[in-house]
Amino acid sequence: METPGNSFEQSARAISRMMGLIFVMFLLVGGFLVYLMIDPTLSAFQSEPEPTLIAVAPPEEDDFDKIENGIHLRTGFVEGEGLMTVVNNCTNCHSAKLVTQNRMDADGWRKTIKWMQETQNLWDLGKNEDIIVDYLAMYYAPGKKGRRLNLTNIQWYVLEE
């Protein structure tokens, strides 16, 4: 017959084993649930290779200012004298598209610069102002449009009724 002390020791060991088991189970289930929160579709276990999820800065390219067919690729500006001065001063606050879609003579571009300095926090351009104005007036000068243009760039298609 076992002594009461022995029986207590046995029960204590059994309880401790059970506690251990519950703890391990808890870790397993908990770990799985945490994983499910991050990846609810279990995409990591699907065979299709996943693109890297971490945003990686593009590697330093030596052709950052590449020019192709006379166009500065990064901004869309036309290649010409003063190009990089324009890129460096006119694309910090707004898109290059705001420049390239407009057409003005030298006076108009100079007034636009003055307006940006008075109201939009543009800095003093110093000697660069003439370089910028000359470039813009040369490559982004107004064309003749008349009072109404012909319809252009029509993509013809057969209309099915």
Partner: peptide, 19 residues
């Protein structure tokens, strides 16, 4: 599955992890 879809399907926790 692209990155955008992954982000949409995941919870706030995942978005926070990515950010």
């Amino acid at each position: 599955m692209n990155r955008r879809k992954f982000v949409q399907n995941s919870g706030l926790g995942a978005m926070a992890a990515l950010l």
